[in-house]
Computed example of a mutant assay.
Amino acid sequence: MNTSSPRSSERGFDSAHFRQALSQFATGVTVITTRLADGTFRGLTASSFNSVSLEPPLVLWSLSDKANSLPIFSGNSHYVINVLSAGQEELARLFSRRGLDPFASTDYELSRTGQPILKGVTAWFECHNRSRYPEGDHVIFVGEVEECAVHPQPALIFHGGQFGSTGKSQ
């Protein structure tokens, strides 16, 4: 007995409808930051962040396989996942734009390995770039958390194509 359903490409799958359905799931907003070998900082906005494991401490996030920053994050040994607070919507927009240096107008400090940690975030996770898995049109990054911090305050969320807030501190 075959209990599998037809693949999406075999059913004439509607990608726009799929995207609309996904937008109904509220997600946190993060900025992933890293430092290149030449000392330059790079970062991008991502809402695809999730915990994987407590032992060892693992988290994941994903990036389009067409992203210009894919080689940067694939090749670096460490990065920081910054969980944005409710007042950081403009920071989320800034790190999603191309051609700008968002670090020129952003307050940050450096982690013990020299990675940029954005100031004012509700939490951050410094990760060793443990593994990457290509799936569909994205690459899934799994990071082993080496250090993290929490600054309880309302978090920035994204739902239905708009930014919002959790509205309460943890």
Rank of each mutant, 00 (worst) to 15 (best):
M1P: 04
S4L: 15
S5H: 05
S5T: 12
P6G: 14
R7Q: 11
S8T: 06
R19F: 07
Q20D: 15
S23E: 04
Q24Y: 12
F25S: 05
F25Q: 02
A26H: 13
G28F: 06
V29P: 07
I32F: 05
T34H: 03
T34C: 13
G39S: 02
G39Q: 02
S48C: 05
S48D: 01
V52P: 12
E55K: 08
E55Y: 05
P57D: 13
L60Q: 09
S62N: 10
K66Y: 11
K66L: 10
A67L: 13
P71F: 02
F73I: 03
G75F: 00
N76R: 09
N76Y: 00
S77N: 10
V80C: 07
V83H: 04
S85H: 01
S85P: 10
A86M: 08
E89R: 12
L94K: 13
R97W: 01
D101C: 11
A104C: 00
S105T: 10
S105H: 05
R112M: 12
R112Y: 10
G114K: 06
Q115K: 07
P116H: 05
A123T: 14
F125E: 06
F125H: 11
E126W: 04
N129A: 09
R130V: 12
S131F: 07
E135P: 01
G136M: 03
H138Y: 02
V139E: 04
I140P: 09
I140G: 06
I140V: 15
G143A: 01
V145E: 10
E146T: 05
A149N: 09
V150K: 03
H151D: 09
P152W: 07
Q153N: 12
P154L: 04
A155E: 03
I157W: 02
T166D: 08
S169F: 10
